[in-house]
Every structure is written in structure tokens, then in C-alpha cells.
Design a protein around this nucleic acid. Structure first.
Lengths: 149, 149
DNA sequence: TTTTGTGCAAACGTTTTGCAATTAT
DNA sequence: ATAATTGCAAAACGTTTGCACAAAA
């Protein structure tokens, strides 16, 4: 067996600190989200883990995703055009580029994001907890496909 | 009767130009969205107009919202935590501040948005069509309520 | 008159819920 | 032991769809 990542260790510690339990399903969901940059939906998490955990249920996947969001380990991108909410384990503020054709999601970091965040916090009177920055368009691959049509 | 806004006039002209028809329902939906800054959901649009158009159906509301999005007259904010997609008639790029407690949505404009948009376009290889910039947190009113709890 | 748009009601798919069985502690 | 968590199945909810009727052009 592999050594668990620091994030997983911390997650388990935080669970205990909150009086919650450390279950294989919870670990598996976070581990899976950390292992991919495809921004999966609940259904995709379920499918990916169903093989290894045959008894896994949608209820558990949704419960765990909600828990992880609440604990700040992942964030929700919401529906990206395929009628499913997608999740992102990259909690560093960044922009998500959503391809409206193939529904791929690419992360992009920008120095301007920090400025924007600071501006919002200072100007709005809001106590900002989280952000969801999505740009919609055509990814390079789909631009190519469109030209060939 | 009041004079229709330039935007409504242009909308009707564009409908004709596209070979589509100018119906009271279509005008009413756009007019309603233009009249409010509450970023309504489909259900809220339906409720608001149902009084004046008793026969109005959800199908028409959804069809019209899709049409308006497609024509670029409104944009979709998506689910903001209440499990309903919300719509925004403010198509000038801006950030939306979503209160996670009362689900209010406030628009805020920032000079940094333009820089961010330019950066994304230049760096990503994406052909950006649209953006959805949401910040989640507590609005001033709900911050006050939380303190009193 | 002809074609588009509407309204209704049923269908769809994702997400949520209640509860008995299971499992972590 | 005991309280939290899971899995199952059914339900709920927002949204979409098919089709007959109405209405715009």
C-alpha cells in the first residue's frame, strides 16, 4: 500500500477532531478527486469508485461530496452544460475554462485573480468565502474540429 | 401603455431578422428580467408573469430563457445553492456576489475583470464566449444576523 | 394559409431522503 | 456497546419533451 498524502492525513485528523468518522468511502472520494484534474461529477466519482467499492451508493457519494465541500477540501463548479454539478479539488483560487462543446474543464491561474479578489473584498461589504470563476468557450481541440466542419 | 425600451425594440427587430416571431410571452420575459436586479430563476420568472399571463407555461418560460441566452440578451448564473438556475439580464461582464445564507445576488463591476478576461484569452488558447464570475459569502445584512446569533 | 409558438401533462435525470443494516470507535 | 455511516429504494425536484391547439405573419 502507498503512503497517504499529507492532505489525506490531515483530512482524517480533521474528521476525528470534528467527531466524525474516517471511513474508506470518504477517503476514497477525496483520494479520487485529488488524483484527477478532470473535475468529475458525482456520477463520475461514483463510476470511478464503484469498481473498487462494489457496494458504494450514490447517497454516500453525495454525502461525502457535501462533507468535503463543507470542510473546504473541494469546491463546486456547478453545472457546466451537461446537467451535472462538477467538483474541483483545486481549492487555490483559479479560473476554470469550460469547453461548451466537449465539456472539458481546464484550470488556469492568473495574477489578476488576486487583484480581483482583493477588490471584491474591499468594495463589496461581503465576507467572501469562496469563488467560482468560469469562462465558457471553445477549447483548442474543439476549435480545430469546428474549422473542419 | 408605456414606450418599449430600446432593448425591447431591438429584440423584436432581431426576432424578425431571424425569422422568429414576436410573442407577448417573449417580450414579457425579457421585460421582466430587465425590470429587476434580483437575478430570478425560471420559477421566479414564471410566478412573476403568471399573474398577468394566466395561461403561461413553464415550457414557454424555459424556451424563452434559452432563446434569450442564445441571442445574448441574458446570461445564466447557474445554481447558486438553491438548486435552481438563475438568470442575469446584465450582460456587461461583472462579478456576482452570492450570499450563501439569503441567496441574494449583487452585481459588482471591477476594472480587474477586464485584465483577467484579456489574460485568459491570451494565455489559454480558448475562444472565450462567455464568463460567469461568482463570489460566495455573507452579504452585509446576513453578517449582522450572524453576529446576533 | 402556413408555419411558428404555446400550453399541457407526462417524462427525464440528477439529487435527496428515510430507514434498516453495517461499521468505526 | 453505541452512535455515526452506509446502502438501498423510493421520492422529490428542476427541467425537458411530445403533441394538439392557438396565434403570428
Amino acid at each position: 500500500m502507498t503512503t497517504p498524502s499529507p492532505r489525506l492525513v490531515e483530512f482524517n485528523q480533521n474528521l476525528h477532531a470534528m467527531g466524525l468518522r474516517n471511513t474508506p468511502q470518504r477517503t476514497a472520494v477525496l483520494e479520487y478527486l485529488d488524483s484527477t484534474d478532470t473535475h468529475p461529477s458525482a456520477a463520475e466519482v461514483y463510476s470511478a469508485l464503484k469498481q473498487r467499492y462494489p457496494g458504494l451508493s450514490f447517497a454516500t457519494v453525495y454525502n461525502t461530496l457535501d462533507l468535503l465541500v463543507g470542510m473546504g477540501y473541494i469546491s463546486v463548479l456547478g453545472d457546466i452544460g451537461d446537467n451535472q454539478a462538477h467538483f474541483d479539488s483545486n481549492i487555490v483560487p483559479h479560473a476554470n475554462l469550460v469547453c461548451v462543446r466537449c465539456h472539458s474543464i481546464t484550470d488556469i491561474h492568473s495574477p489578476h485573480l488576486e487583484n480581483l479578489g482583493t477588490f471584491i473584498t474591499q468594495e463589496s461589504g461581503f465576507e467572501v468565502v469562496n469563488s467560482r470563476i468560469l469562462y465558457y468557450g471553445l477549447c483548442p481541440v474543439c476549435q480545430q474540429k469546428t474549422k473542419n466542419t
